[in-house]
Design a protein around this nucleic acid. Structure first.
Lengths: 131, 131
DNA sequence: TTTCGTTATATTCGTATGAACATATCGTCA
DNA sequence: TGACGATATGTTCATACGAATATAACGAAA
């Protein structure tokens, strides 16, 4: 009934994929200026957030985030121009994909059954753990 | 450098997602007329193929595959009209997504590094196990 | 009525992935 | 110089997921 949601991941080169998790992390780094704060806000361990960021930085020839240790406030993390570009490009692409999906899957979406009560909205990746 | 590849999954309702694996399974069922043969061709266990199919059938109010036990050749599996429609819609959508991705990610694709030797083509899901 | 290939389903096991926990390090400021 | 908050990294543990294996049921054809 409802328009289906599309989850996707973009594979660059050999080892380097970008999906919703890493983009959300970048966005939170951009607004908060800190990797640990971003991790807290996203409900993931700092360890994991750092690994995601490491994977992102090593995916491109330039870093997407520049980080500093120590100093005022203990350090911090800032988006590079490439990081900002990646976010923008990804979000624009995502919007087009969702719009296209709503049209493309209209013929079959009506036949999909939603098992739970009524029309449940698509839950975010984070909350699907106990769903 | 190379155009990035997009892997995606379409989430219907609460419990029911369709991705490249299930679509490939449907296609092999369509050509071979058998679930076990499709599993062999795709290099997956019959068990897993059956589970994927079960998930697909329970995702819609009509089945996408109708199966028969026993009889000539032991039985078989045939696509329903909905199954054929799902394949067609998915493949068309996929083609558009890939085309769109090549354009959208052009600004950043040039900065992606491919660690392995030269320009390695994006490997299929099946072969990424030991990669 | 025996055979055969398939659908259908349970059980066990190995592995990969993330969660949790624990530190080490760094640089500014009080 | 000591404290603080953040980056950086190792280690251990639980859990989910697929692989492998085993077996039951079925129905046409020989």
């Amino acid at each position: 009934m409802q328009a289906p949601a599309v989850r996707f991941r973009v594979d660059f080169g050999r080892e380097g994929a970008v999906g919703p998790g890493k983009i959300a992390l970048l966005e939170h780094i951009g607004t908060g200026g800190s990797l640990s704060q971003a991790a807290r806000e996203l409900g993931m361990s700092y360890r994991r957030a750092w690994q995601l960021l490491e994977s992102l930085n090593s995916c491109f020839r330039e870093p997407v985030v520049q980080s500093a240790k120590g100093g005022r406030g203990g350090g911090g993390a800032r988006l590079t121009p490439l990081g900002r570009l990646l976010i923008r490009v990804y979000r624009e692409f995502e919007a087009e994909v969702q719009k296209r999906a709503a049209r493309s899957f209209r013929p079959v979406a009506g036949l999909a059954r939603q098992s739970a009560r009524g029309t449940a909205p698509i839950v975010a990746l984070k909350d699907r753990r106990k769903a």
